[in-house]
Design a protein around this nucleic acid. Structure first.
Lengths: 235, 235
DNA sequence: CGGCATTTTGACCTCGTTCAACAACTGTGG
DNA sequence: CCACAGTTGTTGAACGAGGTCAAAATGCCG
């Protein structure tokens, strides 16, 4: 076991500026307000594969991704891993346990070398009270996430694996806003299977089926070309 | 089809006072602040079985349950109903689409005659900017809900039906904080099956199994006595 | 190059859905 | 108060989607 202080590299440089100006919840503010916020932001680096926090850890800190990618997952009561979300630059955790410390229910692991900005809960609270519009931004974002989480729940509860995969591909294609039809999966198929509530074996089989049916074409490990989105969504 | 205006009974009485003082997000405020909020709160009644809003409806209104119970559910892309949440007195919807109107992704149906307080999004926004502590309350609540939604997702993805039922019963018992061991289900078994991502048939069978094993005892349609919680959770 | 993780394929088997029939319960009007 | 209809809950039987286990194949990184 390493010392915790060794896990992180605390950057004293001005890399926090990146976070603060980058994040949607802050980037509507005036320069002097941004400066004030930067004063209470701390910046750390985590290397690929390192665990940012464990379930059961206490925390009163909000994490904002500056560069890299974080995988957030839970363990079920039976010990099975379930990928909850992938945090990309600009995303933040909801652990803004504003008043009291809370216990993490999730694990957060860096999928690449990642830079993260931290804001202490108490200081964040002060900022929110001082600049109430930030709260509105965060509320809007939470609202979006809540919808996404509930939608995912509904899919797990009602659609079969085939459909969940198809919907995931369609939605991901859409979110990228790319003109083209090529997807680069943001995680391994193993993790994707977990996110979609199935097994790697089944995911692999269904993708092969889609390919055989001519709906998609797989390129390498993470590349997928969508050939026929309409048919795909009819499953 | 009835006229929409007939669906609701708009109460001009002071029943909003109920909402405002009852709701956790407001009840820490001073009297004069409460009065100010009451001015922008409207109160309606919906009868059992009536639909408060449909998916696809636009809305910029926050609903706060005053009395009664609301069932929030989604329809999957295949048209299957999935119960998302039961709103009890004091609970509120997340449709505080603060700036722009949003489209409901859920349906909300009254399970009993229910009284609801409404706050217009724009007016709510003004209140939040004026009393920033309210935002913190709402953020905390959203944070809780997000955890609950993600936990539910993980269960659907990783636990089998048996375990999901057992965990639901345990958690419900716990949330009631009752000293005793008797549960009164907050919804029909049909709806519970939907919430748990299974069918009424399977739920009925598993409950019978639990009863045969001596873990529970069913009383009437919605009563369940927990006889052996520990064994139940080992499932 | 060699070791390790991910992905794929195959065979099997289980859990849970589906379909169908019936039973119990709730509410409504006569 | 009872008869009837609609809804909800239970039980049985059979099928099938998808999980599990095992093993080979591919790709990745030091």
């Amino acid at each position: 076991m390493e010392e915790k202080s060794c896990l992180y590299h605390v950057g004293e440089e001005n890399s926090h500026k990146g976070c603060v100006s980058l994040v949607p919840i802050f980037n509507h503010l005036e320069d002097n307000q941004l400066n004030e916020i930067m004063k209470v932001v701390q910046s750390i680096s985590v290397k690929k594969g390192e665990i940012l926090y464990h379930a059961g850890d206490t925390s009163n800190t909000m994490h904002i991704i500056n560069r890299g990618q974080i995988k957030v997952y839970r363990l079920s009561e039976m010990g099975k891993e379930q990928v909850v979300r992938i945090l990309n630059p600009g995303d933040f955790t909801k652990e803004l346990a504003l008043f009291k410390e809370t216990i993490h229910e999730t694990y957060a692991e860096a999928m690449f070398d990642t830079e993260i900005c931290l804001i202490n809960g108490v200081e964040l609270q002060n900022i929110l009270l001082k600049y109430p519009t930030i709260s509105l931004e965060i509320l809007t974002e939470f609202s979006r996430r809540l919808d996404a989480a509930e939608k995912q729940t509904t899919r797990l509860a009602t659609e079969k694996v085939e459909a969940r995969i198809a919907l995931y591909l369609a939605e991901f294609l859409d979110s990228e806003g790319k003109d083209g039809k090529t997807i680069n999966l943001p995680m391994s198929k193993k993790d994707l299977a977990s996110y979609l509530g199935t097994t790697p074996e089944t995911l692999s089989r269904r993708l092969s089926d889609f390919e055989a049916a001519g709906y998609i074409k797989q390129k390498g490990q993470r590349g997928i070309v969508i050939l026929n989105l309409d048919e795909l969504l009819l499953v």
